[in-house]
């Protein structure tokens, strides 16, 4: 099991009152499987993704990534887990603007050791980014930027990939293309993928769909 959530609860303090966002969420995700997390704006999708990505801690419940229970890990261990086992793709501003595309892609894998250049080259060429390697992110279109983000995520050979509206900023055709390539790569590498989206089309292409409503999975 790559990802396992058990009774995860989370609330946010909004000025005076405590707003519950997640009220006991449990699910599993196996290696090689894909999962779509849907829900209205503000339903807690992103929060759930952040908790799964060891970016935020749950108030209650337990989360396992690669068999490690997150609440047992300190900040350093969680950071290491993110470095080695998890890859994140956000809707935008994924890239470090002052580094070239090549440096961006190599970045995460380089953090935990020597980047596998052969692997990266395969990914880059399959994402059609060969021409862009020496450019800076600002010179890239939105679709290209997202593909770079995905390339970086895959290059790190994660066990779990978490994507938050990865195509939300893109037009339909580009979005379709980016998603295709992401799924292809996930399938090739056996990575587990959880994608947060409000798009039915995207969700439909995943192995499994979960719907978050009022803090509960339905």
């Amino acid at each position: 099991m790559v990802l396992r959530l058990e009774g995860v609860k989370k609330s946010f303090r909004n000025s005076e009152e405590l707003v519950p966002v997640l009220q006991g969420v449990s699910f599993d995700l196996e290696a090689g499987h894909t999962l779509a997390l849907r829900g209205e704006s503000g339903s807690g999708k992103s929060t759930l993704l952040h908790i799964a990505g060891a970016l935020e801690a749950a108030d209650a419940g337990r989360v396992w990534v690669s068999g490690k229970e997150l609440s047992q890990l300190d900040d350093g261990a969680r950071a290491q887990l993110r470095r080695t086992d998890i890859a994140l793709v956000f809707q935008q501003f994924n890239l470090i603007p002052s580094l070239t595309v090549a440096a961006n892609i190599a970045f995460q894998s380089a953090l935990s050791g020597t980047p596998d250049l052969v692997h990266i080259k395969q990914i880059v060429s399959s994402l059609g980014l060969l021409e862009q390697m020496q450019k800076y992110p600002e010179a890239l279109s939105g679709g290209q930027q997202q593909r770079v983000a995905i390339a970086r995520a895959i290059a790190a050979k994660p066990k779990l990939m978490l994507a938050d509206e990865p195509t939300g900023n893109l037009d339909e055709a580009t979005a379709e293309n980016v998603l295709d390539q992401m799924l292809k790569l996930v399938a090739q590498t056996g990575t587990a993928l959880m994608i947060v989206t409000h798009s039915k089309n995207i969700a439909a292409r995943m192995n499994r769909q979960l719907h978050l409503c009022n803090g509960f999975l339905v």
Binding site: A79, Q80, L88, P97, S112
Partner: peptide, 16 residues
């Protein structure tokens, strides 16, 4: 800020 967030989310501990 963006870079720092990205770097952290890619698994660099705060202290480092």
């Amino acid at each position: 800020r963006g870079m720092i967030r990205t770097i952290r989310s890619l698994g660099v501990p705060m202290r480092t």
